[in-house]
């Protein structure tokens, strides 16, 4: 059986830019050797399938990318805030559990219908990056890359629901490497998390630019009439990611006990802002009268 051609450089660049290449094979090196050397897997029925092996890689990549997002909303003393160049001595989004908040929201509560998920998955399987950006660190062995790509394709084409956090992370990472191609390598797993604060802002500027066709920039093929909808949706997503990240960072979700409907600890956002220092109240002694003493008006 002839060995298929290795994926073209543009496919390699795409995988690098959405972060999968680095997380799986590069500095992250999260992908089990059995995927890279499938001969072992093929002869050992006890080893998990490639889908099972790539799933945690993608989940780790999404989490890492979204750590980069939430510290953009509320920096703290964590490594992501340091990489971003805005460390803070007081707790931030990581301590406030904002990344869990975003992942849970995206994966479990944003309705992500198949009619959108399938083209998104297909786009990730076939996506190319021929944007003329010189990317460093693409010297992965073609045979390894091909197998990684096949594992990704197997996952994306399986019947499993695609968690929305992965394509969102892919979007942020694509934009990150547009802003700074060097971000394909470095600390953390994801290109977006490697950006400075100003570079992250530039990535959002690309997403938000109302006169650009982001779908075209992404080189993703959507059938009409979905293409126009996806283009508009991405502009909404750009804003929503920022707003949701800040809402999550300053809210109580990380310390809220759904069963007792009480707080396990004081939320980070409450401590920073001084909100209700003794917890929830029935009322406040803030009534100081009626303006100019007037309690009633009429025509």
């Amino acid at each position: 059986m002839p060995v298929p051609d290795p994926p073209p450089l543009s496919r390699r660049a795409f995988l690098a830019r959405i972060g999968v290449l680095g997380a799986a094979l590069g500095g992250g090196g999260l992908l089990a050797r059995s995927v890279i050397a499938p001969a072992d897997a093929a002869t050992n029925p006890l080893l998990p399938t490639t889908v099972d092996l790539i799933r945690p890689v993608l989940a780790a990549l999404a989490r890492d990318t979204l750590n980069g997002l939430t510290v953009f909303a509320m920096p703290g003393p964590d490594p992501y805030s340091r990489t971003q160049g805005t460390p803070s001595s007081t707790p931030g989004a990581i301590e406030a559990g904002a990344t869990d908040f975003i992942i849970n929201s995206l994966d479990n509560f944003v309705p992500f219908p198949d009619a959108i998920a399938q083209p998104v998955g297909a786009a990730l399987v076939t996506g190319l990056a021929d944007s003329g950006i010189a990317l460093p660190g693409l010297e992965v062995l073609p045979v390894e890359l091909r197998r990684l790509d096949r594992a990704l394709a197997a996952y994306l084409q399986s019947d499993e629901a695609l968690p929305l956090s992965f394509p969102i992370a892919g979007l942020l990472n694509l934009m990150a490497t547009q802003v700074n191609p060097l971000a394909v390598n470095g600390p953390h797993l994801s290109p977006f998390a490697r950006l400075s604060y100003a570079e992250k802002a530039k990535a959002f500027e690309l997403i938000e630019r109302t006169d650009s066709d982001l779908v075209a920039l992404l080189d993703v093929q959507f059938p009409e009439p979905l293409k126009a909808s996806v283009s508009g949706l991405l502009k909404f997503v750009g804003g929503a990611l920022i707003e949701f990240a800040t809402f999550g960072a300053y809210g109580e979700s990380a310390v809220y006990d759904k069963v007792s409907r009480t707080l396990r600890a004081r939320p980070i956002g409450w401590s920073h802002t001084g909100y209700q220092p003794h917890g929830p109240v029935e009322g406040w002694d803030d009534f100081i009268g009626y303006y100019q003493g007037r309690q009633k008006v009429s025509d």
Binding site: A73, M74, Y197, A198, A201, K202, F204, E205, E208, G239, I242, E243, T246, F247, G248, A249, Y250, G251, E252, P267, G269, W270, H272, T273, Y275
Partner: peptide, 18 residues
Amino acid sequence: PALAAFAGTLSDSGIRGQ
């Protein structure tokens, strides 16, 4: 606080200073 943060970050004018 969370709604105040939301309200401060919903904008059509990008990010101040960026």
